[in-house]
Simulated scan of single mutants.
Amino acid sequence: MDIMSILGIIVAIGFVTFGMVFDTETMHFMFSNLKAFLDPTSFAITVGGTIGVLMISFPAKNFKKIGKHLKIVFKPEKYDTAQYIDQIVEIAKEARMKGLLSLEDKLNDIQDPFLHNSLLLVVDSVDLEKVKNLMETELTQLDERHALDREFYERGASAAPAFGMIGTLIGLILMLGNMSDVDKLAQGMAVALITTLYGSLLANVIFTPMANKLKARHDEEFLCKTLIMEGVIAIQEGENPKFIEEKLYKLLPATQMKLMEGEGEGIPEDGKPKKKKRKRKEKQEPVKE
C-alpha cells in the first residue's frame, strides 16, 4: 500500500475543509459553513462537463481502466532494481558455466513475464538482432500505452478548470440578467464562484496527481525492463557476469544510486554499490591507577 498517496489525499482534502469550516474570529469550527460550498448546479457543470469531454475524447476502454489505475497508484507492484540485477547476474553465471540451453530449466522459476519470454527466445537460439528488436518493440509499446493512459488524466486536468470558468460565466450572466432580484443575484454569484472551486479541486487533487503518480510507476517499470533487455542481450553475447553486473548498475539513475548510498551502501568508481564494512569497536582497557 502506498501510504504517501493516501496521506496526500487526506492532507489536501483535510486542509481545504479546515479552511472552509474554521472561524478565525471565534477560533471554533463552523461545520454549517459547508452548506455554502455545496451547489448541485456548479457540480453538474464542472463534473458533468469534464466527464462529457473525456467521453468525447477517449474510448470506453479508458474508463474501464480507472479501477486498474487506482490500484497502481494506491497498491503498486514493487520494482526492485537491485533484485533484478542480482537475478540477471545469477542467470549470466549459469549460462557462462553450462551454456545457454541450461537456462531452460530456470525459466519456470522466473516470475517476470518480460524476463521469462526474453530468455525463452535466447534458449530457442533466436538471432541476437531479432531478440533485441522484439524487446525494443515491446518497450516502445509499453511507453506509448502508458502515455495514452496518462493523457486521459491530463485531459481531465485541463478540462475541469475550463468548465469551472464556463460555470463562472454562466453565473455572471445570471447575475447580470437578474440585478433587481436579490435572491437570484446571490444564486448567480454562488454558481460563478463555486464552479471555479470545483474545477480547481478536480484538476489539482484528482487528475494531476493521478497522471504524475502513473508517470512515476511507469518510470520504475520501464527502468527494470530496460535492465532486463540489456542483461539478456549481454547474456546472449556471452559477456562476463561481473561486467554485466557493473554495466547494469551504471544504467541506474543518479538519484537512485544516491538513495542506495543513503541506505548504507557505498558507490565506488565502477558504479556498483557495495555494502560498507562495519568497524569493530575496540575494547578499552581499564585505566590502571
Results as ranks from 00 to 15, higher is better:
residue 151 E to D: 09
residue 156 G to E: 09
residue 157 A to W: 01
residue 158 S to M: 04
residue 158 S to N: 06
residue 160 A to W: 01
residue 164 G to P: 04
residue 165 M to E: 04
residue 171 G to F: 09
residue 172 L to R: 06
residue 174 L to S: 15
residue 175 M to F: 02
residue 178 N to C: 06
residue 178 N to L: 08
residue 182 V to F: 12
residue 183 D to A: 15
residue 184 K to F: 12
residue 185 L to G: 09
residue 186 A to R: 10
residue 188 G to C: 10
residue 189 M to Y: 10
residue 190 A to N: 15
residue 191 V to F: 08
residue 191 V to R: 14
residue 192 A to K: 13
residue 193 L to I: 01
residue 193 L to G: 08
residue 193 L to P: 03
residue 194 I to S: 00
residue 194 I to T: 08
residue 195 T to C: 05
residue 196 T to C: 12
residue 197 L to R: 05
residue 203 A to T: 05
residue 203 A to I: 14
residue 205 V to T: 10
residue 205 V to M: 12
residue 205 V to K: 00
residue 207 F to S: 03
residue 216 A to K: 09
residue 218 H to P: 00
residue 219 D to L: 06
residue 225 K to S: 00
residue 226 T to N: 04
residue 226 T to W: 02
residue 228 I to L: 09
residue 232 V to Y: 06
residue 233 I to K: 10
residue 233 I to Q: 11
residue 234 A to E: 15
residue 236 Q to H: 06
residue 236 Q to P: 08
residue 239 E to Q: 13
residue 244 I to E: 05
residue 245 E to S: 15
residue 246 E to G: 07
residue 246 E to N: 13
residue 247 K to M: 01
residue 248 L to S: 06
residue 249 Y to R: 07
residue 249 Y to E: 02
residue 250 K to N: 14
residue 250 K to S: 00
residue 251 L to N: 05
residue 251 L to G: 11
residue 252 L to Y: 02
residue 253 P to N: 06
residue 254 A to K: 12
residue 259 L to Q: 13
residue 259 L to V: 08
residue 260 M to R: 10
residue 261 E to A: 11
residue 266 G to C: 12
residue 270 D to P: 09
residue 270 D to R: 15
residue 271 G to Y: 04
